[in-house]
Computed example of a mutant assay.
Amino acid sequence: MILTFMGTGASEGVPGAFCQCPDCMEARKLGGRELRSRSQLLVNRDLLIDMGPETYWKSVLYGIELSRVKYLFITHSHCDHLEEKLLGFRGAWFGREMIEPVLYAYGNEKVAQKICTRLEGCQAAGIKEACCMQTVHPFETLQAGNYSVTALPAIHAPGEEAFIYLIEDKEGKSVLYATDTGNLTEDTYAFLNGKHLNCVIMDCTLGAKNVTDTYHMGLRDNRVIQERLNSMGIADANTRFLCTHISHGTGGYRYLAECAERLGMELVWDGMEAEI
């Protein structure tokens, strides 16, 4: 399973558009791994998690054919995770000779409402037919080609059912994508009990800061999850723990990467590929 991190930042990105803090100024100066667009993950070129505002440009930058994506799983409806207007260019004369004629999209009720409203507003014939939206619910497992994808509850976005996703393929590989959330719920730990995770991708909005946030995590919280999963036998020494969804003002790439490495975790960057 090939994981491509198309974006690894929090909602404001790094550097923040209007921010002049030392971290953002340094990111503008150094570029490279210091720059972070809004978080999204591509699995094997055909399954995408989240479709934020940089999706188009990142697909061009990294040589990704978006028409090859067949499955789209949205974590929640916030604008840094869902730019539904992009779907108005899928099909008709905007998107010709697409590799996959239909995109199967999944998300909560608010996600479904935003996507369906956008598709209904499209005038060009063929746009609505190029996307099929399905509403999903907590602990529901969906079959998406070679993948089994389970929507698990995130602690985030009051007023809607935000999700993290467990992705399992037919080769026996298993990845937990847990961004924009606080710690895992007890029901999630219970659901994962008896499974083995090859990779755990965790929200690290707070970086190495020693602060508490109900709806986000940092390295301190990531360590709690790592230890809990290891103690339950869900993860082991071969499991990769990857940290993403990094906010500005939490330190630069080199500093956070060293902090993560000391805990047996890896800090990801925009454009990073990981083979699981």
Rank of each mutant, 00 (worst) to 15 (best):
T212M: 04
G194S: 12
E266F: 02
W93A: 13
N108P: 03
K195L: 12
V136L: 10
V149S: 04
E34Y: 07
H81I: 00
K173R: 14
R96D: 12
I234G: 00
E275H: 02
A17K: 15
T214H: 13
H248D: 08
K58T: 14
P22E: 13
L41D: 07
F241T: 11
H248K: 11
C259D: 02
R223K: 15
E275G: 01
N44G: 13
Y71D: 03
G91E: 10
G91F: 08
L229S: 08
A151Y: 02
G52A: 06
T4P: 00
I225G: 05
Q113C: 08
E275Y: 01
R33W: 01
C204F: 04
D203N: 15
E12V: 14
L197K: 07
L41N: 12
M265F: 11
L152T: 09
E275S: 05
F191P: 02
F94M: 03
H137A: 10
S59H: 05
K209D: 09
T212Q: 04
K195S: 11
A112C: 15
L142Y: 05
G95K: 10
P15V: 03
G145D: 07
A235P: 03
G121F: 05
R36Y: 05
L48V: 05
A27R: 04
V175A: 06
Q123W: 09
T205L: 09
R68Q: 13
D203L: 04
F18V: 11
R38A: 11
M272P: 01
K195H: 13
M98I: 11
E261I: 00
D80I: 02
L82S: 03
T181E: 06
T250L: 01
I49E: 09
R33I: 01
G172E: 05
E140P: 06
F18N: 13
E186H: 12
L30G: 00
T55H: 04
V60L: 15
V224H: 10
D270G: 08
D169K: 08
I234R: 02
C122S: 14
C116P: 00
L256C: 00
G7D: 07
Q226L: 07
F5I: 00
G95M: 09
P153S: 02
E273L: 05
L66T: 13
Y106E: 08
L242S: 05
K114W: 01
H216S: 14
K70S: 12
T75R: 10
T8S: 14
V136K: 08
Q113D: 15
L61Q: 15
E109V: 08
D23V: 01
T239N: 12
H196D: 06
L86Q: 10
G63C: 04
N108K: 01
Y215Q: 06
M6Q: 04
L176T: 12
Y215D: 03
R68F: 01
R38D: 07
L47W: 07
M232K: 14
A154V: 02
E261A: 15
F94S: 12
A260F: 07
E54K: 10
V149P: 05
C199K: 06
G182R: 10
